[in-house]
Every structure is written in structure tokens, then in C-alpha cells.
Design a protein around this nucleic acid. Sequence first.
DNA 1: TTGTATGCGTTATCAG
DNA 2: CTGATAACGCATACAA
Lengths: 341, 341
Amino acid sequence: MNIGEIAKRSGVSRSTVSYALSGKRPVSEGTRRRIQAVIDELGYRPNAAARALKEGRTRTIGLVIPPASRRLTDVQLGFVASVVDAAARADLDILLSPSGGEHDRSFERVVTGSRVDGVILMEIRLEDERVTRLRQTGLPFVGIGHTSRPDEMTWVDIDYETLMARCVRHLADLGHRHIALVNRSAELVAAGYGPSHRAQLGFTEAVAERGLEGVEVCCADDAQAGRSCVERLLAAHPGLTAIATVNEAAIPGMYRALTDARLTVPGDFSVTGVSARHWAENLHPPLTAADILADELGAHAVDLLVRRIADPGLPHRHLLVAPPISLRETTGPARPRPGRP
Amino acid sequence: MNIGEIAKRSGVSRSTVSYALSGKRPVSEGTRRRIQAVIDELGYRPNAAARALKEGRTRTIGLVIPPASRRLTDVQLGFVASVVDAAARADLDILLSPSGGEHDRSFERVVTGSRVDGVILMEIRLEDERVTRLRQTGLPFVGIGHTSRPDEMTWVDIDYETLMARCVRHLADLGHRHIALVNRSAELVAAGYGPSHRAQLGFTEAVAERGLEGVEVCCADDAQAGRSCVERLLAAHPGLTAIATVNEAAIPGMYRALTDARLTVPGDFSVTGVSARHWAENLHPPLTAADILADELGAHAVDLLVRRIADPGLPHRHLLVAPPISLRETTGPARPRPGRP
DNA sequence: TTGTATGCGTTATCAG
DNA sequence: CTGATAACGCATACAA
């Protein structure tokens, strides 16, 4: 079924059908209706490939997510959902590319061969080959996250540095003097994952500023890791009374370790961090945390991308958000740990 | 950058470049290398739209997921991940369509206009307009889930009926006589959501078979709902000693309600159900459950789709899996509830 | 071993 | 207001 068939059956030329559809040229009401009738009857839809070939654009954007094998965190899922949602609202289709490392076939397919009009890139590292590649191709793209040279690209991101510093100050205000940062996995940190690095930065700064004792540990993104991580922390640091974390997936395990150690939250021990709101609210007890507004950020990324596609010469723009801490039920005044020497 | 440009710079014709790329015709080693050098230098990639137009296929499959606004369950996420993964392995791209109800623009775009070679459809209802629509278009598709007329389409699915019956029998074997089924949301059940209906069926059958007392309730897909649902259940049914559920998202809340009622699991009360393995294992305590092998099912769906695309005339095939119950730490011998009259 | 020519389905220009 | 026709970039049948 193609436009020629519609033209034949309506007794007009192909161009008339095309114009009747696009409205880019006046078509008499009578023929317009006749054409529409035939289209409805046959269920004709313009071929997307032919249109893309002719118009030079696909009305599709690429979304590069972490490899599917790695389980996505709630925050990441929130980004995906909001991007998908915003794209659908803008009548854009989404081509998904699960690609992490370099030389990924799926990634290459998406960024070359004119399959998409632009790309949204998630999980960006401080040094990220994909960013380099995207810049080479000249394809418009927007990062959710940014590299160590932020001016080179358009991005939206969460200000983990400020957020973590806020968490530390909040704990300090409650009298905590010995605090741990539970970061994401050692691999991620080693790979130069921006949020981890910036969380570290913010933690170190605020700890120094308030003259606290701070300890930093890495922890894999799952409950079991969170549990053993906190067990070790408690054993090694008897004076520790609070944890700040950016590892939401590990929090249930951290709670568990605390419970097992007969430490109540927030009575004996405080926990806070950065997390998706939905996740923080559904923990038991609900986590006092800076709530990441994934919806807003994803929608904004799509918006920036749409503009960049319309005018690739636009100067790069950046959006760094630092949501306030939502007080819930996991932070309280410091109290010396029971059984502490 | 197009094939003509490469041809010009290599001093050969366009067809020679094309054949050098596809290997469908012998090309002398010398010219092949010369062409490749130019391609590498300019970073040429064949235009996907032109190729799709010429070949009549896109090397892309559509994945229809529930609307992004609705939070996906762990099981659903597992399906998406495994489909994405399997498609990437088969060098297929994925066009994502978040669409639930009827007349969805995103859905229409994906299934018409030859944007994809085939579709994988998730969250199918007993009566599902999208299935009807897909059948009309003649586009190959595979369901993860199936309608009330299973022979009309190719699908893979989880045998919730058998699974739920198994859960009930397992509880009955442990001496439980009064059991509740916590289903998914009332909306979903009302909309004719297959898994919910089949779980209901299996529950009713097994309860009758073993002469038990059974009660069925619906519950929204979140922790809060699970909590209040179990609170109500405990108040209304003093003899209740076990729950079977297909609502994994509600389980943390269910645990909470049990704890609040001073009921230990599995000492005083048993819980079991159907869940993603990862989810069951990460609950505290880990849930005794039939583990849904999302990976396997998603990969299988892609495989079936690829075959259907290759030969649309193939007879419909179905895969109904019923994984065994993995014994973990939430079911034990029945014991009368404390404080029971 | 290579070159020429055609058509995939659209949109848009040019001509009536 | 409408029709004929030329691209868009590629793959391939046909010729050499």
C-alpha cells in the first residue's frame, strides 16, 4: 500500500494525495474528502523509510541506556521513563540502545546511518568515549550526566556534590561527628563515574568544613552488598553514628545490618542520602534524602534535544539541579553507640 | 556522505562500493582495500532509511510496553531487559512504544508505516484491542502474555494458574487451612488482565481441591497498598495463617503489616507467591516463590519473532512456562494465630 | 572483475 | 487547484 495506489483509486495524482495529507498546498474540499475516504478504507500510512529518506530526518531519537544485563537503579529507571514519556508527548519515537563500553554495535548503529535525529545519553563517565564519538559524528545529543569537560556538550545533571555536602551538614547539625559515605561500586568509581566522584568531593569538602571524621567506602548496587558493607563499617568504626549514601539499591541491606546490630534508626543511628523519591518513600523507615526529580530532568533533556535538533548551532546549555532534602524518618540527634568503649 | 561520494573518491562505481560492503559479488582485493580506506577515512555508514526503503525491512523491532507513567514491576522490567538484550545480540534495534489504551499515537506509529519488521507486545489483556489491530495490519508479532483466544497468535507466557495452584498446595501441605490470595490492582483485574485472572483460577481450583477456606483480595502495586491490604485481611480473618500473592510490589508492605501485628514469618504466618527471582531473593526475609525467569522468556519471544519475520506463514507457537517453587524463608508449618479466639 | 540503469515511496519543484 | 517529474541513498538485475 503506497501513495500511488491511493492516488489511482482517488483518481488524482500522487502529489495531490501528498498535499492533501500534509496541507502544504490547498486542495479542494471535494478531492480532499475523496482521498481521505480511500485512505481510511485501505488504512494507508506513509512509509516511514521513504519519508525519512526524502526529508532527511526520522522523527526518532536514540536513548542510550546502560547495558540491559546490569540491573538499572530506580533513579535510572526514572530517567528512562520520563524520557520515553516526554518523547511520546512530542510525537517522537525512541530507538533504544543498551550500550556501555566502547565499540558497541548497537551504539554505532544508532549514532551512524542517520537512524535518529538526536541522542540522549545516560550514565556518562568523566571520560566517556561515547561523548567523543557523538561529537565526531555531529549528531545532536544531550547528556543526562556530564564529562570532565562540561562545556563541550549540552546536559542536564544532578548536583551530587552539593547534595552530598548538604547531607553531611544536615547530619553535623544533628550532632554527628563521625560519618560514613557509602558510595556506588568500586568499578564504577574506578571507571570515572561522575556522580560517584562528585559525591566524594562534596562529602570530603563538607566533612573538612565541619571538622568531622569521615570515612568513604564503595559498595556494589544491591542489598547484600549494602548489608556486609555496613557490618564492616560498624565493626571498624565504633564511633560511627551516621551514614550518607548515593547507593539507593544498597539501602535495604544497610537497614538490615543496622537492625541486626541492634541499632534503631533514627534513635541510635542516622541514615540519609540521595535517592529517587519513590524509592525513599517506600523504604521502611522512609529515608530522609534529597529526592531526585527524574521526571523533570528527563523531560528537560528531551526538550533541550528537540531544540538542538531544530538548530544544531545553538550554544550548549546545562541544567544542574540540587533538590532540597526531604525530611522523613531516618535522621535524628547523634547518640553514642551502645557498647562503645 | 553517501555511497556515491565513496565511489567517486575511490574511482569506482557505486555498485562496486555496495558490493564491496555486502560481499554479494566478488571484488578484487585491491579495489576492496581502496574503497575501505576511503570509507574509514570519511567514516561512511550506509543510510538506514535508504536501505530500509530498498530492502523492504528495517532490522528493527517494536517493543510495546505499559505506559511509562505507570511504574513497571520487577517482572516487567525483567522482560524489557531480556528483550532488549536478545535483540541486541541479534543485531536488531528496538523501537519503544509506551502505550496502554486504545488509539495510542505511539502505538499506531510503530505498527503502521513500516517502521518495524515485527512487534513484541507486553501486558496483554484477555480482550486486547492492540492484538486485534496488530492482526489487522498483518505485521508479525509475539505476545508476552496472551488473550482469551490463545490460538490466534504466537506468544510466550507464565502459567500463573498452575503456579498459584502450586503455591496453595504447598501451603496446604504445611497444614494451612485458611489462605488469602493477594492479587494485583482491582483496575487491572477489571480490565481483564490475564495473569490476574489465571492466578484467581488456580487459587480457586486448588482451594476447592484441598477443601480450604480461601479469600481473594485485590491490591494496588505498591508497598503502602500491600500494608493496608494485609492489615484489613488480618482484622477480618482471625483464622488466616498464610498469603499467596502475585503482587510483588506490594510484598514489602505486607511484611510490614505482619511485623506490626507481631506476627513472625514464617513462624506465625506464611507468605508465598510468584515473583522475579531477583526480587524474591532481595526481600527480607527472602520469599519462597515461583521464580519467573524473565530472561529466558524475553529471549524466547525475540527468537519466535525473528522466525515469524522470516516466514510469516508459520503456524502459531506458544510457550507456557511454570517454574518450580524455590524454597526460601517465608513458609513454614501452620500455627494458630496468637490471640485467636 | 566492473559499470549502468532501475526502482523502492515520498516530498517538493516546476509547469500548467 | 492539479499533474508530471526529479531527487533522497541504496541494492541489484542486467550488461560488458
